[in-house]
Write a protein that binds this DNA or RNA. Structure first.
Length: 994
DNA sequence: CCCACAATGCTTTTT
DNA sequence: GCATTGTGGG
């Protein structure tokens, strides 16, 4: 590589700390490599092992090692992570492994946990954390996730529990001082806040203690541990200083405060520090990168040299001009920087796409990619970048339709059919009553389990309230020599396999069990086969787990794995190096890469810039070691992200925006067009028309249907029979109603509106799900309330009476752990005590009250069904029902709720109450003058009424849903609701095969 | 122009 | 489930 004057200065700079601010495409890594080589050539007596090069990512470290060994083959590339320096090459390492090594030299033996593993570790010990918010949020996982993130931010900023406790104490004192002058609502709010902070502080300390006691630590605490070591054993630091005379840091804008502290300690004279980075490419603030890294450098090293590398070797002039127009809109904390310049040609215009919807965007881009490939562009030189992974879905579909090869970075193998299958077997092995897993397994052709029999079993299970497994077993026992018995040969085979594996699971370690499962199913793959790669990736995950597990056995693994999934853990597929494949990845993942052609998808409002989402527990600015980030920091970081995306392109750049009207575009599109000259000369605007007749086109060919199954299962008796045709099965028309009436309940309608496929799975295919804490609890509470009113007919029931009943009917099914169950039980009893006290305080004639009154009314070809919790007679005298003008008795309909209290507007809209009101009037001869939701959580009643118009609207809604159901429209609507959906393991929308 | 209701999102990632 | 933005009627 020829050096330009800028680069030469950077490479040959001699004395003192050096800060190189290097724009995109300026050959940064090359400069660092050259500088290392230059130092070795020119500094007398300097040996390679006296040089330390630090990066944040392993990828950057390996790249640098590769470059160095290429430039100087004799040199070696230094130690890899965690090992003793082998001598020879410069020490090139990540900050993390460097610190780990420093600590190991001094006998540090604690095991390192990544964020997911810390989450799991804490989740398993949730009882000891004594979370007060656990019961309030009822979602320990999510809260813990937020806590865990917060702990990471603390580690990034070197905030230890003591320091945070002091901060909380300070906040508390401030609150107490201000409290008298606050109005009650404000005081309540702030007090709540202080209580939350106190809990966070307590849990922070406690988790540290738990990790410590277990001989573990998180990756993030490596830095504070290292600093602590250097404080207590100064000779360790001296040794490091003596060893490393020159230190280089790449991607400096990605370093956090803790890492900068490490640098400050290490880099004292005669150490010579070089930091290279670009604040315009800082996109990792959310994971702890200090927004003030450059400022901290300037403060720490006032006698420094700053150099700029702004000659770009990558992109055309047009691309660079547009990128500069965009980034100029940000505040420039570093002050004026030279503009990017290049001797590259002007290049083609940047294309600004404007599509009406995501579907036409994807279709246009896929078409354009196809054109480019036709003109000879290599697939891997084309990249499609997006802000969030979900935005790629449509493009993937369109590329698949056109059979254009592509590869996706950051794909979790857990989403693949083959692993979802294998995991279903594992779940089934873990517990035969995993109904959804069993449903999936039975769909595999090799078990020859006819859908009709499966349907019968599901109906049996829902009738007998037993598991699907038990229902099929009862068929088997009762079948004798009938025709059913013949249909169950596959079932017996499956049971045999599970039994064999179960026995194995007790003796053998996890990887062995997995191998046995795979071979028991007769799965073999050709080398390079995509699914084989998924399998291998998962097996590697198992091996790594075994390393850190206690027993290496199945039980422990399943506990870990279920938490792993709950924690949102991903098992990433190694990226394939297919030169023909178009590259799909997030903008973050694209940092540091370059492509001839770059498409940036969905630069649209809400998507890019992405909406700011503050975490539940925010890291306080007061504890930040750099100045508090400016107000517009979120938008600015998003803008930098787009800047990074744009500067990945060498030749052609497409920026695509989706919005209904051209006026309401992403603010970044406006930014790009804000310079009249650039707008006129460098940008071509293309408007993509919406696809005609949406939905009329053939849906993308299911990639799951495989014609070449035979190749995969060579030598097995049942080739092609492993994969269930999930999508085909889910798309099969469902039997709606035998007598022509479609049965619907309020819940069914609401389920349909959440997700039509969820409705189909639950209400038509009757796939049973496991017991759930909230439901078991709700049922016990309902029964206790009913019990109260029944006893009330004869006397005033005491709390003890109801408590005894409550304990009697309590079931342990569905609770995640003993602690959760105990919490529910305690709160349940508290709520009942309050309920009874209130009810006992008022007069009531309980004899007239009706409970759990079932109904069924006809709405043309629909039968609307349901059950009203409680009907209270009303009137002048409570127990003499007064006929109204129409001759109907006036009543109050009550529904008991055990969940979170909702605002009254919820009661106004509730379809359930409308359906009850309609039922009372049409079927029971009652006039529902009051509809009440009774929240047992806080013993609050929300009452409402229904106008004729509202009731008509409810009927209309039911009719609409019924029409959709009759038309067999059961498209899944994946989204937020999936978090709570039990059918995810059998949902085609959650399956990705590429 | 304002307000109510509908529509549209629910990140990014490393050790 | 929830916050924010967009739409459409008055």
């Amino acid at each position: 590589m020829e050096l330009d004057p800028e680069q030469r200065k950077a490479v040959e700079h001699g004395e003192g700390p050096l800060l190189i601010i290097a724009g995109p495409g300026s050959g940064k890594t090359g400069v660092i490599t050259r500088r290392i080589l230059h130092l070795l050539e020119t500094v007398p007596g300097l040996r390679p092992e006296n040089i330390l090069a630090l990066t944040y990512t392993d990828k950057a470290a390996s790249e640098m090692k590769a470059r160095i060994s290429r430039s100087l083959p004799g040199l070696g590339s230094g130690p890899s992570s965690g090992r003793e320096p082998s001598g020879g090459g410069p020490h090139i390492s990540t900050f993390h492994s460097y610190c780990y090594q420093v600590l190991r030299e001094r006998g540090f033996e604690r095991r390192l946990l990544d964020q997911t593993d810390v989450w799991i570790f804490l989740r398993q010990r949730i009882e000891q954390l004594e979370l007060d918010f656990y019961q309030k949020l009822a979602e320990p996982g999510a809260f813990l996730h937020d806590l865990n993130n917060f702990f990471s931010r603390c580690q990034d900023e070197l905030v230890e529990p003591e320091r945070f406790e002091a901060y909380v104490g300070e906040a508390e004192r401030r609150f107490l001082a201000r409290a008298p002058s606050l109005d009650p609502a404000e005081r309540e709010f702030e007090e709540q806040n202080v209580r939350k902070l106190r809990e966070v502080a307590r849990v922070f300390r406690k988790s540290r203690e738990l990790l410590q006691a277990a001989g573990r630590t998180s990756f993030g605490s490596l830095f504070s541990e290292t600093l602590a070591l250097w404080n207590s054993e100064p000779d360790s630091l001296d040794r490091q200083r003596a060893r490393y005379l020159f230190i280089l840091v790449d991607e400096f804008q990605d370093t956090n405060y803790a890492q900068i502290e490490i640098l400050k300690r290490l880099a004292v004279r005669p150490s010579n520090l070089t930091a290279v980075g670009d604040d315009d490419q800082a996109i990792y603030r959310f994971r702890g990168a200090s927004s003030g890294a450059f400022q901290l450098f300037r403060e720490a090293f006032p006698r420094r040299t700053e150099l700029f590398l702004f000659r770009n070797y990558r992109s055309t002039r047009r691309i660079l001009r547009a990128a500069s127009v965009l980034i100029r809109r940000n505040d420039r904390a570093l002050g004026e920087k030279p503009a990017l310049h290049t001797s590259n040609p002007e290049g083609p215009r940047i294309i600004l796409l404007q599509s009406a919807d995501a579907a036409s965007e994807a279709a246009w881009i896929a078409e354009e990619i196809s054109r480019l490939l036709g003109r000879g562009t290599t697939g891997s030189e084309i990249a499609a970048l997006y802000r969030a992974h979900a935005y790629r879905d449509r493009l993937v579909e369109e590329l698949g339709r056109r059979e254009i090869p592509f590869s996706i970075r950051g794909l979790s193998v857990l989403a693949s059919s083959v692993l979802r299958d294998l995991v279903a077997y594992l779940q089934l092995l873990h517990s035969p009553h995993e109904n959804v897993s069993l449903t999936r397994v039975l769909l595999a052709p090799r078990w020859k389990f006819p859908e009709e029999l499966a349907m019968a079993a599901r109906e049996e299970a829902s009738r007998r309230h037993c598991s699907l497994f038990a229902a099929v077993e009862s068929f088997d026992e009762g079948s004798g020599a009938s025709g059913v018995a013949r249909q169950l040969t596959g079932w017996r085979e499956l049971k045999g396999l599970l039994e064999k594996l179960r026995r194995k699971s007790e003796r053998e370690q996890m990887t062995k069990l997995f191998d046995a499962l795979v071979s028991g199913l007769g799965l073999t793959f050709l080398p390079g086969e995509e699914e084989g790669v998924y399998l291998e990736t998962f097996r590697k995950f198992l091996e790594e787990w075994e390393e850190k597990s206690e027993t290496r056995k199945f039980r422990e693994f399943m506990e870990y794995f279920n938490y792993f999934v709950e924690a949102g853990g991903r098992i990433e597929r190694p990226s394939p190096a297919d030169p023909a494949a178009v590259q799909l990845m997030s903008v973050h993942a694209a940092k540091g890469l370059e492509f001839f052609v770059v498409f940036i998808l969905s630069v649209s409002p809400q998507r890019f810039p992405h909406r700011e989402q503050k975490p539940l527990i925010e890291f306080p600015d007061d504890l930040r070691n750099a100045p508090a980030p400016a107000k517009g920091i979120h938008l600015q970081e998003e803008r930098r992200l787009l800047y990074v995306a744009m500067t990945r392109a060498k030749e052609r750049l497409y920026i695509s925006s989706v919005s209904k009207s051209a006026k309401k575009r992403s603010i970044f599109i406006e930014d790009l067009l804000s310079d009249p000259a650039v707008r006129a000369k460098d940008i071509e605007e293309i408007s993509v028309p919406p696809l005609e007749a949406a939905g009329s086109r053939e849906p993308a060919r299911s990639r799951k249907s495989r014609k070449d199954g035979r190749d995969l299962f060579r030598g097995t008796p049942h080739p092609e029979t492993f994969h269930p045709d999930l999508a085909g099965w889910a798309a099969r028309p469902a039997v709606l109603a035998l007598d022509g009436k479609l049965e619907l309940s309020a819940t069914a309608v609401e389920d349909y509106l959440t997700c039509p496929l969820k409705y189909k799975f639950g209400h038509l295919l009757k796939i049973p799900t496991g017991p759930q804490a909230a439901l078991t609890f709700g049922s016990v509470m309902h029964r206790s309330v009913r019990r109260y009113f029944e006893l009330r007919r004869t006397h005033l029931p005491t709390f003890e009476e109801i408590k005894e009943y409550f304990e009697d009917v309590w079931k342990s099914a569905g609770y995640e752990d003993k602690y959760q169950e105990e919490t529910y039980r305690k709160t349940g009893l508290e709520q009942l005590r309050e309920f009874i006290a209130r009810q006992n305080a008022q007069p009531l004639e309980a004899r007239e009250i009706q409970f759990e009154k079932g109904f069924r009314w006809d709405l043309d070809d629909i039968a609307v069904e349901g059950r009203i919790d409680q009907i209270n007679p009303l009137g002048d005298h409570p127990f003499v029902p007064r006929p109204t003008d129409q001759g109907l008795r006036e009543v109050e309909l009550v529904d008991y709720k055990t969940g979170k209290p909702r605002p009254p507007s919820e009661a106004d809209k509730s379809l359930q109450l409308s359906v009850y009101a309609l039922a009372a009037r049409r079927e029971m001869g009652l006039e529902p003058v009051r509809l009440s939701l009774y929240y047992l959580t806080n013993n609050q009643v929300v009452s409402t009424v229904r106008s004729a118009k509202q009731l008509d609207a409810a009927v209309e809604k039911i009719r609409e849903v019924a029409d959709q159901i009759r038309a067999q429209r059961f498209e899944p609507s994946p989204g937020f609701a999936c978090k709570w959906c039990d059918y995810v393991p059998i949902c085609p929308a959650h399956e990705e095969n590429f």
